[in-house]
Design a protein around this nucleic acid. Structure first.
Lengths: 202, 202
DNA sequence: GTCTATAGGACGATAGAC
DNA sequence: GTCTATCGTCCTATAGAC
């Protein structure tokens, strides 16, 4: 009973680039709700004012839609983080005097995430789903974890072991985000992180 | 092409209780692979040597099968933890002189979890999926988080805020478990936890 | 760039025989 | 306790018109 009418749609006919942006945005929301296995192309198409074949014309397949969503997020996050820290985007992940420190990067990350629960949920759900080796995002998340551990670990000053600290930082952020998402009105993500960072970095 | 043969199955006809145990075990493994939305009753039935109606005869519906799996885990976990700590099961979550401390409970939990990656994955996947309000395990996980925060928080000695520490402990454990599951051969969960606990509890 | 139409399955669940 | 048979719905994807 979802689309009983075979009538003409009155949605505007969008240019391809804009349509693609809309599709990615809608998909992001729906994956956050249901995960990738729970995502249906029919629902994406409905929310975009398209038919399913119309949707597939733009994205090719369900799997490649997922990849598009993830790549789009990575670019947007890097841009936002760089601007928030006032560093050029290619200097984001390098240490050195006058550049960013690990606590700074973390604080910026948490503050950005606190403003976009939907995206955080997308990653939380996919991070768990993609543990299965045959998940279409399995390789993506494996590479991502490796990259994050290396780059964050490089920001840790020598006495401590960079990878260990990075691992704890990432674990703590991921875990606190889940708790926040389960109870967004009561749980203050930024405050929780700051308290945790005090313990972790002291 | 999954079950081409309409021939008679040669599987034994099991007593109901035993069949139920088998179903729960198989389902646990499959949910860990695919999540609840990716779980198909057909797959469960196949792995049990049953048809789908035969499976539904035992569990009623897909939703109630999920609930059965979760309840079964909670009971088994409580039993194991109590025996590992040498406390009667009703004293597991109470503080006091001579009883368990938070670091002890955590160490025991991590050591148990390190031996059953499948179960840990089940919870990791469902924890994320069930953030959506209409997920069949949403209420279960909400209640679970509340219960854990309260009981763990009560183990924290007064100067510190129990709920804050509990929140950090849970976040860290959940996060480290994800990293472990993504790379079980290289990542040492117990060692990672012990290192993190040193920082957190010092 | 979007449509209609349809292929070709998989899904959860029910009815009723044995 | 398990089966066969079947219902109605949903799914991804393709072919081809406009």
């Amino acid at each position: 009973m979802k689309r009983a009418q075979p009538l003409r749609r009155d949605r505007a006919r969008l240019p391809a680039a804009e349509r693609r942006r809309q599709i990615i945005e809608v998909t992001t929301r729906l994956i956050a709700e249901r995960g990738f296995w729970g995502l249906s192309m029919q629902d994406v198409a409905d929310d975009c004012g398209l038919t399913v074949p119309g949707l597939l014309h733009h994205v090719g397949s369900k799997d490649s839609l997922l990849v598009a969503v993830l790549e789009h997020r990575d670019e947007a996050d890097a841009r936002s983080l760089a601007s928030q820290l006032g560093v050029p985007i290619d200097r984001l992940w390098t240490e050195g005097p006058g550049l960013v420190t690990l606590p700074q990067v973390c604080a910026a990350l948490v503050r950005r995430n606190a403003g976009q629960p939907e995206i955080v949920r997308l990653f939380a759900v996919l991070e768990a789903e993609s543990l299965a080796p045959d998940h279409p995002a399995h390789d993506y998340f494996q590479a991502r974890q490796r990259r994050i551990m290396t780059t964050l670990g490089a920001l840790v000053p020598p006495p401590a072991d960079g990878r260990t600290v990075a691992s704890q930082v990432v674990a703590l952020m991921d875990g606190l985000q889940i708790q926040w998402l389960r109870d967004p009105d009561t749980f203050d993500l930024v405050a929780a992180w700051d308290a945790a960072a005090d313990r972790l970095f002291r």
